[in-house]
Nucleic acid binder design. Structure first.
Length: 556
RNA sequence: GCGCUCGUAGCUCAAUUUGGACAGAGCGUCUGACUACGGAUCAGAAGGUUGGGGGUUCGAGUCCCUCCGAGCGCGCCA
């Protein structure tokens, strides 16, 4: 049985009141959705709606007049917690509430807990395959790969919390010229000569060649070595894949031939100039693209089309590919091939992320494994740790270019926002530990007078906690995990402010207020843990005190 | 040249997809705050014609056009 707190959220109540008022005042048709938001400025109330602005034209009313009408009707029968409703600005309807609605939020957070709060079911069990990283298995993972790893893994966490069934997948391009060049480079280094110009020139090639047994098949040995290396680097960042798919295996199993046959059957492929072409121009691409080269070898495109069909065949209903922006020219041709197989365009979503620029001081480090001068994901994790590394990647929207200057990251590692958030969690735990030491117990929530929570700092924490459900939903729908990062920093900030101004366990705090604040602290813990778990960042119970010496060392 | 993406405070970014009220944080700078719970904290100040211009709208950082600047892409490579 749903709790009364849960089933009637404030937003729903206010929207219902607005809808009723609109109907009474004769607005027709009623808008499909009524928007209500939390204004940035306190004098605009706790909640605000622009319905009067939106409906004015259709209703042939002046926005402020319509708003005034709504206000009067709502004032006649105000929903719970509503103290005052007023017209403001060009025709906003602003609701001023008592603090009770925020105390309801606290009760809801506690009732639903880490497992249940800010959870959605709009994913409706949809199996979604998220493919990310998928770097060629020809070397270790560079720093840029970490961005896709942190993004993809966190997106999956968020999707899962919204009722999707995500599947984490890594695609191995384990055949073709890149693999050949990789093998040739290993052999060259083993024999003490320079790899070919179009081969791989990173330092790791020499190191790996030295490890390689003399009788090993360089291609196979190197492939296994690279896979292991990449998997270990990802594991250090807390990322594990459900499936590592192999291009080679797709060829071997006949899936690639089958895809080609289907494309031919559907007249989406044709022969010309000795090659086989995809009618990608029909699917929105600039021109048709080669599927099978005139030497009989498939290009990258054909196995990739087969691969996407395979992902669907394995049970996924939605495919999300996370690609670097340098591949954007490839989007149309893959989409064309995907649709040419008879799939719906909506089933394939390609998220493009701007590339990471890696700097070492003033000089840019190249990201190409072929060029050498490589900065590895491991290097970053060594430098700042997994939590800070992950947080760094999740700080920004994928659409922004990200510059990681290793010198700056190292020098400022103690200022990484991750510590600000983790410290908030450690403080929560510290309060609980101190309370336990002193034998102070939290009375059952139902017996605690939450009305005692009326300080701006306390209410700010509750307002932030209220937003988590919306943030998780938005992060999932917009494929934007960084929104959660932004939110958790806000919650940590609100809590630090509360902690600073509102003593909890101090002897001069009356027991009822102390109890209310302890519950507020517990609700904060729940919010922090939910967000940190989704972000894949640890929530330590205590953090070692930093001394100036530690800070010095960290810079070294 | 064509296409895609981006341009917000000194720096790094959020808000842009779904138009909403006076554009928010952090870092850096300056000034302050604990002998009670952890100062990895808190408060205040300074800092913006949201790259320029035009348009749509009651309302534009957000939508449209144009110009400027940056990155990337335009292979029978992956």
């Amino acid at each position: 049985m749903p709790s009364p707190v849960r089933c009637r959220m404030i937003r729903t109540r206010l929207i219902d009141a607005l809808r009723a008022a609109l109907a009474e005042s004769g607005v027709e048709p009623l808008p499909a959705t009524i928007e209500i938001g939390r204004p940035a400025r306190a004098e605009h109330g706790d909640w605000s709606s622009n319905v009067a602005l939106v409906c004015a034209k259709a209703a042939s009313r002046r926005p402020r007049d319509l708003a005034q009408d709504l206000v009067e009707r709502i004032t006649a029968r105000p929903p719970a917690h509503v103290r005052r409703v007023e017209v403001a600005g060009p025709g906003f309807v602003n609701f001023h509430l008592d603090h009770g609605w925020l105390h309801d939020v606290l009760r809801q957070v506690i009732a639903e807990g880490v497992a249940g709060y800010a959870r959605h079911d709009f994913g409706a069990g949809t199996a979604v395959n998220v493919e990310f990283v998928s770097a060629n298995p020809t070397g270790p993972l560079h720093v840029g790969g970490g961005r896709w790893a942190a993004y993809g893994d966190t997106l999956c966490n968020i999707l899962a919390r919204c009722g999707y069934a995500p599947h984490r997948e890594y695609y191995l391009n384990d055949r073709g010229r890149q693999m050949d060049a990789f093998a040739e480079s290993l052999i060259a280094r083993r024999e003490g000569v320079e790899p070919p110009d179009d081969g791989y020139h990173g330092d790791y090639i020499g190191e790996w060649a030295a490890e390689m047994p003399g009788d090993a098949d360089a291609g196979e040995w190197g492939y296994a070595r690279a896979r292991r290396d990449v998997a270990e680097s990802l594991a250090r960042l807390g990322v594990r894949f459900d499936t590592w798919s192999s291009e080679r295996e797709l060829v071997r199993s006949g899936a690639v031939d089958a895809a080609l046959a289907t494309l031919r059957d559907r007249d989406a492929a044709y022969d010309a100039d000795g090659a086989v072409w995809l009618r990608s121009a029909d699917g929105g691409d600039d021109k048709d693209r080669v599927l099978v080269r005139s030497d009989g070898e498939p290009t990258y495109l054909l196995p990739d089309i087969a691969y996407h069909a395979d992902k669907l065949a394995r049970g996924s209903h939605l495919l999300i590919d996370v690609w670097g922006a340098d591949h954007h020219g490839y989007v149309e041709r893959l989409t064309a091939g995907f649709c040419a197989l008879g799939n719906r365009r909506e089933q394939l979503e390609i998220v493009l992320g701007q590339l990471v620029t890696v700097m070492r001081g003033a000089t840019e480090a190249k990201i190409s494994k072929r060029a050498g001068n490589l900065v590895l994901l491991d290097d970053l994790v060594d430098l700042v740790g997994a939590d800070a590394a992950r947080m760094t990647f999740l700080l920004q929207s994928l659409a922004s270019r990200q510059t990681i200057d290793l010198d700056v990251v190292a020098a400022q590692s103690m200022e990484n926002p991750v510590f600000y958030v983790q410290y908030a969690h450690a403080r929560v735990c510290s309060l609980a530990a101190t309370a336990a030491e002193r034998g102070i117990e939290r009375p059952p929530l139902a017996e605690v007078p939450l009305g005692a929570l009326d300080q701006a700092r306390e209410l700010a924490v509750l307002r932030t906690l209220h937003a988590l459900g919306d943030v998780v939903g938005e992060a999932a729908r917009e494929r934007a995990p960084h929104k959660l990062t932004t939110w958790v920093r806000e919650l940590a900030g609100a809590f630090h402010g509360f902690y600073h101004d509102c003593p909890v366990l101090r002897s001069d705090v009356a027991p009822p207020l102390r109890a209310a604040r302890l519950w507020l602290t517990e609700a904060t813990r729940i919010g922090l843990v939910i967000a940190l778990e989704l972000l894949g960042v640890s929530a330590p119970e205590r953090m070692d005190t930093l001394t100036p010496d530690d800070a010095e060392e960290a810079v070294e």
